[in-house]
Amino acid sequence: MLCNEDLECVVCCYQYTRSDRIPRILHCKHTFCAACLEQLCKMDGVIRTITCPMCRWITCTRASLTLPGALWVNTEIWDQIPKVLQGKQDVTEDLKDTEAQLLKSTLPFSGKSVFMSTLQKVFSCVLLQAHEMTDC
């Protein structure tokens, strides 16, 4: 069980929600709300960079992907967020919105680039897990 302080973004100090303040994980494994990450990101040609406000690690993603399409949700925090109506959206609307954003971010590209994007996410996840196992 997480304490209440772990359920809020350290940048804006708002609690995470299932709509506009979704907890997203950077590559350094620090978590911030999607709204703050949108403000922190910078575009550099075809690359989007986000510098972690805690450790200064730079997370790079393709500029063609939206942040929801590029960064994983912190499920440990997500599971602790109440499943009640938040704002004017409920959980099913959030999922539909996320699916629409993912589709929109991949539509202009061929099926091969969608496959490569998915493969890159899986591969980076495998590398992170392997790195964690070697640190033990």
Score class of each variant (00 low, 15 high):
Met1Cys: 10
Met1Glu: 13
Met1Val: 09
Cys3Arg: 04
Asn4Lys: 09
Glu5Arg: 02
Asp6Asn: 01
Asp6Tyr: 04
Leu7Asp: 02
Glu8Gly: 00
Cys9Ile: 00
Val10Leu: 10
Cys12Asn: 01
Cys13Leu: 06
Cys13Glu: 05
Cys13Gly: 00
Cys13Ser: 03
Tyr14Ser: 05
Tyr14Asp: 07
Gln15Thr: 03
Arg18Leu: 04
Arg18Tyr: 00
Asp20Ile: 08
Asp20Phe: 07
Asp20Leu: 06
Arg21Asp: 01
Arg21Ser: 04
Arg21Ala: 06
Arg21Gly: 02
Ile22Pro: 02
Pro23Ser: 00
Pro23Trp: 00
Arg24Trp: 05
Arg24Thr: 07
Arg24Pro: 01
Ile25Met: 08
Leu26Phe: 04
Leu26Ile: 06
Leu26Cys: 04
Cys28His: 00
Lys29Gly: 04
Lys29Thr: 15
His30Thr: 02
Thr31Met: 02
Phe32Glu: 02
Ala34Asp: 13
Cys36Thr: 00
Glu38Ile: 01
Glu38Val: 01
Glu38Met: 04
Leu40His: 09
Cys41Pro: 05
Cys41Glu: 10
Met43Pro: 05
Met43Lys: 14
Asp44His: 11
Asp44Val: 13
Gly45Asn: 05
Val46Pro: 08
Val46Phe: 12
Ile47Cys: 05
Thr49Phe: 09
Thr49Leu: 07
Thr51Glu: 11
Thr51Ser: 09
Thr51Ile: 08
Cys52Gln: 03
Pro53Thr: 07
Met54Ser: 15
Met54Lys: 13
Arg56Ser: 10
Arg56Phe: 11
Arg56Trp: 11
Trp57Gly: 10
Thr59Tyr: 08
Cys60Gly: 12
Cys60Arg: 15
Ala63Gly: 03
Leu65Asp: 11
Thr66Asn: 02
Leu67Val: 06
Pro68Glu: 03
Trp72Ile: 13
Val73His: 05
Val73Ser: 03
Asn74Leu: 00
Ile77His: 04
Ile77Ser: 00
Asp79Asn: 14
Gln80Cys: 11
Ile81Asn: 02
Pro82Phe: 09
Lys83Leu: 15
Val84Arg: 13
Leu85Cys: 06
Leu85His: 07
Gln86Gly: 04
Gly87Lys: 02
Lys88Glu: 07
Gln89Arg: 03
Asp90Trp: 08
Asp90Lys: 03
Val91Ser: 08
Thr92His: 14
Asp94His: 09
Lys96Asp: 08
Lys96Arg: 14
Asp97Gly: 11
Thr98Met: 06
Thr98Asn: 04
Ala100Asn: 12
Ala100Asp: 12
Ala100Gly: 08
Gln101His: 05
Leu102Glu: 00
Leu103Val: 12
Leu103Asp: 09
Ser105Pro: 00
Thr106Met: 12
Leu107Phe: 11
Leu107Cys: 03
Leu107Tyr: 09
Ser110Cys: 14
Ser110Phe: 10
Lys112Met: 14
Phe115Lys: 10
Phe115Met: 09
Phe115Glu: 14
Met116Phe: 12
Met116Gly: 08
Met116Trp: 14
Met116Leu: 15
Thr118His: 12
Leu119Trp: 15
Leu119Lys: 13
Gln120Tyr: 15
Phe123Glu: 14
Phe123Asp: 13
Ser124Gly: 14
Val126Gly: 12
Leu127Ile: 15
Leu127Asp: 12
Gln129Pro: 07
Glu132Gln: 15
Met133Ala: 13
Asp135Asn: 14
Asp135His: 15
Asp135Ile: 15
Asp135Gly: 12
Cys136Leu: 15
Cys136Val: 15
